[in-house]
Design a protein around this nucleic acid. Structure first.
Lengths: 110, 110
DNA sequence: TATTTATACCTAGAAATCAGAGGTATAAAT
DNA sequence: ATTTATACCTCTGATTTCTAGGTATAAATA
């Protein structure tokens, strides 16, 4: 139907300001959604690879010593377009569900 | 994660005003969501059966002659409680996704 | 010192979900 | 004669999602 959390859209959104590595992306989705959206790494990394394959994001390794290396992702122009498509799909979806919940409002709302 | 259309919540919502038969439920979800939410019968009927099993809705056959008989579903008190849980889960989900899309707003908005 | 927590990447398989096709049956419209 | 609409239903293949596992280092805690 579209959207259940649509991880790809969320990734593109958090990358739209600054390039970030995967681990950081997952933490930001968690915190910026007020802990509502939580994705395991088993979901995140495949999603990143798919976005990269599609040309919506690009990766670059950032080597660190001592700590694990980081793969830093940044959004591409094509990715920004895709983000806009996701944004409007989301808006449509919200209004669709809202249309149903609203037309059957709870009686006795204070 | 919760919600992708969460058909069960939508069914409970459209049943909260009046009892309806399956075929009518699917048409209302379609129209009241402005054609955004479309479920095939292959999704609808199993969902109805599951809701009935859980005691959230009740069914009664309404015999018709000439036309196919109808199985009319009505929401139970337990179903209304469930609907409220779905409603608040939805609200939380929307604010979660909104939290991400909003903190990375499109530049150049007029 | 041993264990847990945090960092950072990744794959694979099980479970759940979804869309579409198929199946039965009648009546009305084209 | 065929299509559309009504009205119920199941099943299967594809996709999606989640969980659990696997590697490796450093810092904090017990």
């Amino acid at each position: 139907m579209a959207f259940k959390g649509d991880l790809e859209a969320l990734i593109l959104a958090v990358l739209s300001d600054h390039a970030l590595h995967g681990y950081e992306i997952s933490k930001r989705i968690r915190s910026q959604s007020q802990e509502v959206l939580k994705y395991g790494e088993g979901q995140l990394y495949p999603a990143l690879h798919k976005l990269e394959e599609s040309g919506f994001i690009e990766a670059e390794w950032m080597l660190q010593d001592g700590k694990p290396d980081r793969k830093v992702y940044s959004i591409t122009p094509k990715g920004r377009e895709e983000l806009e498509r996701h944004r409007s799909a989301w808006a449509k979806f919200v209004s669709g569900v809202g249309g149903i919940f609203a037309s059957h409002a709870v009686e006795g709302g204070k």
